[in-house]
Simulated assay, not measured.
Amino acid sequence: MYPVKTADNVSADTGISANTISKWLDRGSAPTSWAFLRLLSAYGPDLVCAVMDSPPAWLDRAAKEQRRERIEAQIADLQSQLEGGAR
């Protein structure tokens, strides 16, 4: 989701310190249960599917729906920009 400044962006989404997130990314530590719940709250079923080897079908469907909604929102934003630029 954030190929650049990952820790800073995840920190902004979750309220978890960027330093802590950097340690996870460097594999120096792993999220606590509390931190994982914060991540889950921010990223939903997509996150759970990403960390599971074989997510159940219902969770996979929920993640796909989440991605669809995110893409539709991006399309709506781009459409709005196109319409605003045409004026």
Results as ranks from 00 to 15, higher is better:
18 A>D: 03
19 N>I: 12
20 T>L: 06
20 T>C: 09
21 I>K: 02
21 I>V: 11
22 S>C: 06
22 S>R: 10
23 K>T: 08
24 W>Y: 02
24 W>D: 02
25 L>G: 04
25 L>Q: 11
25 L>A: 07
26 D>S: 14
26 D>C: 05
27 R>F: 05
28 G>S: 08
28 G>K: 11
28 G>F: 02
28 G>H: 11
30 A>N: 13
30 A>P: 00
30 A>I: 10
32 T>K: 09
32 T>N: 06
32 T>M: 09
33 S>Q: 11
34 W>A: 13
35 A>N: 14
35 A>P: 08
36 F>I: 13
36 F>T: 12
36 F>P: 00
37 L>R: 15
38 R>L: 05
38 R>K: 15
38 R>N: 10
39 L>K: 05
39 L>Y: 05
41 S>Y: 07
41 S>K: 02
43 Y>K: 11
43 Y>W: 10
44 G>N: 08
45 P>D: 10
45 P>I: 07
46 D>R: 15
46 D>V: 15
47 L>V: 14
50 A>H: 07
50 A>W: 05
51 V>Q: 00
51 V>G: 00
53 D>N: 13
53 D>E: 14
53 D>L: 12
54 S>D: 15
55 P>F: 05
56 P>V: 14
59 L>C: 04
60 D>F: 08
62 A>K: 10
63 A>I: 09
63 A>Y: 03
64 K>W: 06
65 E>P: 04
65 E>H: 07
66 Q>K: 09
68 R>P: 00
68 R>Q: 14
68 R>A: 12
69 E>F: 01
69 E>Q: 15
69 E>P: 00
70 R>F: 13
71 I>C: 06
71 I>W: 09
72 E>P: 00
72 E>W: 01
72 E>Q: 14
74 Q>Y: 06
74 Q>A: 14
75 I>L: 10
77 D>E: 15
78 L>R: 04
78 L>I: 07
78 L>Q: 04
79 Q>K: 07
80 S>L: 04
82 L>R: 03
82 L>V: 12
83 E>Y: 02
83 E>N: 10
83 E>H: 10
85 G>P: 00
85 G>I: 15
86 A>P: 00
87 R>A: 07
